[in-house]
Nucleic acid binder design. Structure first.
Lengths: 235, 235
DNA sequence: CGTAGTTTTGATGTCAGTCAAAATGTGTGG
DNA sequence: CCACACATTTTGACTGACATCAAAACTACG
C-alpha cells in the first residue's frame, strides 16, 4: 500500500489524478505541493485527529488506511467509514472549524497535511483547485449516501456483500486487484460500521466461504465470484 | 412555511444568514442574487430533479419541504433525507455533473435555482461565497454522518425519537417552534428513511403518545417533553 | 355517500442479537 | 523455541425485536 517515498511531491505522486491535483496545470500543482506541510507517518492505532479538536488541516491518505468514527455522550462509537489512499479526511469540519469525528490509523501509513489557512487562499488563486476540492466534497456526500442506502433496509448478508463490493470497487479504482485484498480493519470495526455484531459478521463470512463466493483467511479476502456477490445485493 | 413572496431577492430574504449569502457584503449578495435564475414554484409530489439527469443547477429551499431518495436497479427506493427552508439540494452532483438522487416536493413551496455555470465563476470572484458554499457542503456531510449514526445500531424507538429531535432542532434553527410542527412527509416516507416498516412507525408513535411524550394528530406533532425524547436516544 | 388511499391494530414468524464457551491467533518473557 | 496470558474470532443454543401477513379504522376527495 506504499506508493511513494517519504519525500515525493504531488508532482510525481501516482495518486495525483485521484486527489486534489486532478485537472491542474503543472505550475499549479507545484503551488499546491508547496503548501503540503508534511507527509506525516502514522502507525497502527495512532489517532490522526480527535472529535471536537480544532481543525487546522485537511488530510489526504498517501498510504495505509484509516477508520473514522463518532463517539456519543455515553462513549459509544459508531464507525462512519474507512479511508483508502487518495481520499480526503476531515471534510466535515469546514462547517464550524472543529473535527466532527475521530480518525485512527488501521495500519502504518502516510498522510499529507493540508493547512486550511493556506488552502483557502490557494483556492481563490486557482479556480481549478477550488473546483476539484468541491468535487471531492461532493464525492464524500455521494459516498455517505451510499452508506445510508447500505444501512437503510438490508439484511446482514446484503450488508456484508455490499461492504466487500465497496472495498473491491475502491481498490480497483486505485489500480489494485478488485478481487484480492487485505481487510485492514478488525471484525469488530466491520460489525460496528454495518450496524451488526461481530458474531453475525463472522457467521456471514462463514456462509460466503461455504458457498465458495469468497476465500477468507484471517484478513486476506479473495472474491471468487464478483457477480454472485452482486446478486446477493440485488437479487 | 412561506417566507417571502415570489419576487423577493436574496437581499431581503429572511433565510439569507442560513443560506449562501451568509458572511457576504451587500454588494456581493447583490451579485449572487443576479444569478439566481428563478423562484420556481413547486406543488406536492412534483419532481425537482431525477436521478441520472444532468445537473445544471443547485437548488435552495425557499419554502416548503422536499424528499430525496435513491432508486436502485430494481426500482426500490431509499429515502436519503428531507430538506427544509435554507438548505441546498443537489450537492452530490458536483462530482460527475449528474444528479445522484431524485428529489420531490412534499408540499407546495418555492426553490431558488442557482445555475452552476455562473455560480462557479462567482465563487472565483467572491472568496466569501466560495467559503460559504464549502461550509454548506460540509454541513451536508455532517448531516449525512448523523444519519449513518442514526441508522447504524439503534432500536426502532430510538430511531423515531432521533427523527423527531432532528426535525425539532432544524425547525428551531429556522425560528419556528421546536416543539410543535407538522410532518410534511407520509408515514411511508418516515419508515423508508429510518429503515423500518410503516407498521413499526405507527406502533412507535402510539407508544410515544401513550407515554405522553408527544401529542400526535394526523401530521401535526407536539413534543410535550423534549428531555424525555432525548433520554430515549441516550439513556 | 362511496371509493381509494393511508394509518392503525392484531397475530404470527424469522433474522439477527445475546449469552456462553471453544478455538484460534498474537505477543511477551523465560 | 516454548509456555503462558490475553485478544480476537468462531461456533452453538436461545431469545426477542421487528417484519410479515391480514384486516379493520380512519381520512380525503369526488
Amino acid at each position: 500500500m506504499e506508493f511513494n517515498s517519504h519525500t515525493t511531491s504531488c508532482l510525481d505522486c501516482r495518486l495525483a489524478d485521484l486527489c486534489l491535483p486532478y485537472g491542474l496545470q503543472i505550475n499549479e500543482v507545484r503551488l499546491l505541493d508547496e503548501i503540503v506541510k508534511a507527509k506525516r507517518p502514522m502507525r497502527t492505532d495512532q489517532f490522526l485527529y480527535v472529535q471536537g479538536q480544532e481543525c487546522q488541516n485537511l488530510y489526504a491518505v498517501k498510504s495505509g488506511s484509516f477508520r473514522s468514527f463518532i463517539t456519543n455522550s455515553e462513549g459509544v462509537e459508531q464507525t462512519i467509514g474507512f479511508y483508502l489512499p487518495s481520499e480526503l479526511m476531515g471534510l466535515g469540519s469546514f462547517q464550524h472549524g472543529n473535527f466532527t469525528c475521530s480518525t485512527v490509523a488501521l495500519e502504518t501509513g502516510l498522510v499529507c497535511e493540508l493547512p486550511l489557512s493556506r488552502l483557502n487562499g490557494l483556492c481563490a488563486e486557482i479556480p481549478g483547485l477550488q473546483l476539484q476540492l468541491m468535487r471531492m466534497l461532493s464525492k464524500e456526500i455521494v459516498s455517505d449516501h451510499d452508506k445510508i442506502v447500505l444501512l437503510g433496509h438490508r439484511s446482514a448478508k446484503q450488508k456484508m456483500a455490499t461492504f466487500l463490493l465497496m472495498l473491491s470497487q475502491r481498490y480497483g479504482a486505485l489500480g489494485f486487484s478488485d478481487s484480492e485484498f487485505n481487510l485492514s480493519m478488525r471484525r469488530q470495526d466491520i460489525a460496528n460500521f454495518l450496524g451488526l455484531t461481530i458474531e453475525t459478521v463472522s457467521r456471514q463470512f462463514a456462509v460466503l466461504k461455504k458457498n465458495g463466493v469468497i476465500t477468507l483467511k484471517q484478513r486476506s479476502v479473495q472474491i471468487n465470484d464478483l457477480n454472485l456477490l452482486r446478486l446477493i445485493v440485488e437479487p
